[in-house]
Design a binder for these strands. Structure first.
Lengths: 346, 346
DNA sequence: TTGTATGCGTTATCAC
DNA sequence: GTGATAACGCATACAA
């Protein structure tokens, strides 16, 4: 009884398993390393004993010598939108299947990235880092994280992050927004929209700026007026108020292109429940992302879809390839967008 | 140049900092341990050099000797609802402030908890574990995680998890649902509801069962008919279809009490956009949780609120206290609920 | 206050 | 295929 308890209480170690199975410490180590050479029956016996003793190799000790933590750091904004939550979710599932665990870190709400956080995170030695904030330059990140190579999301023709070339290596996820936005604008135009408003996201957001630029460009190409730009921050409440202002203080619009779905929801609710306008009758609305809520009947939102599964797969590919060949040249994965037509344009 | 590169490329170690600052290895260690005794000016110089060399103590090495990983494991369902995402979010922020990082693990969608996952997680030696799935008994969890003491969420009068006493220690977060539910039922009754339906969550969910039991109990106390129980699974789509069935196949109801807000949204949309009924005119709806979407104008949901901030604070208190006194008696934190009145009852 | 020696649990290297 | 030994980077007991 005491014997049993002390065995269970103490964290089972490789030496304990080795002693119990009458093998050496190293054999135990090999038993848990699939590509190490060990006589099959011996491995089976060791794994059996390990199971009985409730033993698992200690990742901390292992990472100390292998220089692989099997940890992927994710830096996310203080409070996440559904889109980000969903992506963290899917990424974690995908990475777990590859043997990596997600280590979550919260950045400040204003997307600022202080050195404190980076220093703190580095202590955990993540094998890779995905940052959901955009205003940190590659050079800064690479300077802090030694082993990890950052991945950046870039858009359409912008081949360099923020336009400035970086001296350090980083991998890229290129999102081709043009196709989706073009389809959306064409649909709006086809249904007679003439005054299109762009309801923006966070000012500092690269995605936001690129979306605005692209919409402006495409409207011009199709001979339409430039968009009425309305400031937002990706949140429902701000979008709601901004839409009220647009129609009460400003001259309104007959179509609203929102920088994200949540913003589109805010616009729709302001139009319907406060301004007494109908969607799509009086005003057409298009969103961006295609989060699950977009198909909820109250909104039934027409939106530009970035396929989450594709996106996650691309990111995981980048991570795994970089880990396999740490000194490889910068890698790029490309992602398309397309319009999902539902009920807010027509 | 080569000198600089090699210095930057190699992970800065305590020895390197010690050499550069002309102190011993141990001094560096002490410099990063606030309550270790070290001459202040010496500490400052060391920290200065450390900053220049981009050095951070290695958590893996540290945890190996301190037996503290500063990691909190969270086991969450494969795909998270807004409520869970929000809680993970808030918990991570709160824990980070206390020096802990969140380690995320995905369980299967069916809430099953296989040994593989637990074994895998244990390898990382989390200091504490929060499980968002409910069908794993304390004894099993404690058997697997040696250092960590599990925390369970229990409801109202159910003093024991699943009713069976457990031999192992675990801490409890007691949620008093009665107050909120009672307020909701009173409001419904006050507005003339007579046939109340309960739109359930996942069958295996303890929270779901307790909510159903409590609603049944309170309806009886107030002299009302028992609820028409409709099966659900916390998702929008299932709630939507279940509501259609309730009115097309079944006899309908004049009030729907949903097990969570997302389910309530599904019910509302089915009523308004498919069944042509008005909410709250024809049917009143109450939700549970009060997620951010509940105040969106399209739903404007009356719902029983479990305060997220309170809940997170309680959990963090439990975690910190248990870490400080690992052998303490089981601890309990209590949480209230209250009705948030909006526009779906009236 | 400071330094020396030892150990944490694991894998890599090298013999055999 | 197998086992001894030396790291990995850090914190602690102990002596000074």
């Amino acid at each position: 009884m005491d014997e049993l308890n002390s065995k269970k209480a103490a964290r089972a170690t490789a030496d304990l398993v080795a002693r119990e199975a009458n093998v050496s410490r190293v054999a135990v180590s090999r038993a848990f390393n699939p590509n190490a050479s060990l006589k099959p029956e011996k491995r089976d016996r060791i794994l059996q004993v390990a199971r009985e003793l409730n033993y698992t190799p200690d990742m901390a000790a292992r990472s100390l010598v292998t220089r692989r933590s099997h940890l992927v750091g994710m830096i996310v904004p203080d409070v996440c939108s559904p889109w980000e939550s969903q992506e963290i979710d899917a990424l974690t599932t995908a990475l777990q299947a590859e043997g990596f665990a997600t280590l979550l870190f919260k950045a400040k709400a204003d997307f600022s990235m202080d050195q404190t956080l980076l220093t703190y995170m580095r202590g955990f030695n993540p094998d890779s880092v995905i940052a959901f904030t955009e205003n940190i330059a590659p050079d800064v990140l690479t300077g802090f994280l030694d082993r990890a190579v950052p991945i950046y999301v870039i858009y359409d023709d912008a081949t360099e992050f923020s336009g400035k070339p970086a001296s350090s290596i980083y991998d890229r996820l290129l999102v081709r927004q043009r196709e989706g936005i073009e389809q959306a604008v064409a649909l709006l135009q086809g249904y007679g929209a003439r005054r299109v408003a762009y309801l923006g996201g966070k000012q500092q957001s690269l995605a936001n700026n690129e979306r605005e630029r692209m919409i402006t460009e495409i409207l011009a190409e199709r001979g339409m007026e430039p968009p009425i730009v309305v400031a937002g921050d990706y949140t429902y409440d701000t979008a709601y108020r901004a839409t009220l202002d647009l129609f009460r203080v400003g001259d309104g619009a007959d179509a609203i292109f929102a920088a994200n779905d949540v913003g589109a929801f805010g616009a729709i609710d302001a139009l319907r429940h406060d301004l007494g306008l109908s969607v799509p009758g009086d005003v057409k609305v298009v969103g961006f992302d295609d989060i699950p809520q977009a198909h909820w009947k109250s909104y039934n939102l027409t939106t530009v879809r970035i396929d989450l599964e594709d996106r996650v797969r691309a990111l995981v590919r980048l991570i795994l390839r970089r880990l396999k060949t740490p000194d490889a040249d910068p890698m790029v994965e490309t992602l398309g967008t397309r319009l999902v037509v539902r009920g807010t344009v027509g």
